[in-house]
């Protein structure tokens, strides 16, 4: 009888195992998107959404994903509307957002009750540089940071501080302006503008004196001699502007800023989905198309970081923003 019992146990075990095989096979099978993957761009069409649309076109070109990628623009509130939309897609692995630094600055400076911490950090795809640009028509003699500082001091003594244009308020451009003010002890007047185009127009037209901006946007004006780059807020010199010194070289080691081009997924997503998306983005980043694209828009894509590592970096990045915003008196 003992025998029979053993056989029964074995049989039961076998049946159980047989039942579990497909289950296990299912869980061993990797997560795959079951519907189109939505790329959320929290900004208006044009400008920042080029990256998202480029990822879409690369995925399509090399057939990297069984489902198509769709791009939607959820603009407004300096990126907060798009972020809220992503957070509301809780648990759905079919979404990712392509964000700039506003994912960090907007939660810090407004009273919205969510932040990038509510999202799942996916990847730091690239970084953009910042440089101090001055209208060379208006100030033909200013070539170096020293001359700029001298000029700024003269102007503030006259009661008309130098006018620095920049995109938006309490965003990266104003933060870098504060960084410059604190590092060199000068006083500038920050004029918020609506877009990069608005800044370019006013700088080239001589309506503002200087700006801090992504050097890629001003390449054309630098070549034509309308705008001059004074200094880059970066550890390394910017390719394409190899004769422009950096802040650390001039003795301001902390005055560096890199602007984020980061990818985020909704909160509480299945880790397998995150894994899948990470692999997908890795494949995109490895293509030559992506490298050419970054070189053309002068982004630094040399060190993409993913997942938890990206999250850790974001914490430091967030703290740096908070520090300068506090020093500039923009937040308490």
């Amino acid at each position: 009888m003992k025998h029979l019992k053993q056989i029964r146990v074995i049989a039961f075990g076998l049946v159980l195992a047989l039942c579990l095989v497909p289950l296990m096979a299912q869980s061993a099978q990797a997560w795959e998107p079951k519907k189109p993957v939505t790329v959320v761009i929290p900004y208006a069409r044009g400008g920042a959404d080029v990256i998202g649309r480029f990822i879409q076109s690369v995925v399509g070109k090399y057939d990297l994903c069984p489902q198509p990628l769709v791009v939607i623009n959820k603009e407004g509130g300096s990126g907060s509307v798009g972020m809220k939309y992503l957070i509301d897609r809780k648990g759905d692995g079919h979404y990712f957002m392509v964000s700039l630094s506003s994912a960090i600055t907007t939660p810090l400076t407004t009273n919205i009750n969510f932040s990038w911490r509510d999202c799942t950090p996916l990847c730091r795809a690239a970084l953009d540089r910042h440089a101090l640009c001055i209208s060379s028509k208006k100030y033909p003699d200013v070539y170096s940071l020293d001359q700029f500082v001298k000029l700024a001091k003269e102007m503030s003594a006259k009661g008309t501080p130098l006018q620095m244009g920049g995109t938006g308020s309490k965003q990266e451009d104003e933060i870098v302006t504060i960084m410059l003010e604190k590092a060199t002890g000068i006083d500038l007047r920050y004029i918020p503008m609506t877009s990069g185009g608005d800044v370019a127009k006013n700088l080239v037209g001589g309506h503002i004196d200087a700006t801090v901006n992504n050097p890629s946007e001003f390449l054309g004006y630098v070549l034509s001699g309308d705008v001059r780059l004074i200094v880059a807020f970066d550890k390394q010199r910017v390719p394409g502007y190899i004769n422009v010194p950096t802040m650390p070289e001039l003795g301001y080691p902390d005055a560096t800023y890199q602007m984020l081009r980061g990818l985020f997924m909704p909160p509480d997503v299945d880790p397998e989905a995150v894994q899948y998306m990470t692999e997908l983005i890795k494949k995109v980043i490895e293509t030559q198309d992506w490298k050419d694209f970054l070189a053309r828009i002068m982004l630094d894509g040399s060190e993409p970081i993913y997942g938890a590592e990206f999250g850790k970096w974001l914490e430091e990045y967030d703290a740096m923003h908070a520090k300068y915003l506090k020093e500039g008196g923009l937040i308490q």
């Binding site: 079951k34 519907k35 189109p36 939505t38 489902q67 198509p68 990628l69 769709v70 791009v71 939607i72």
Partner: peptide, 17 residues
Amino acid sequence: KLTLAKGFIEPILNQFL
């Protein structure tokens, strides 16, 4: 490739994409 709101029939409609 523009997604409109599809509601509860979304899984069915996604079959046709």
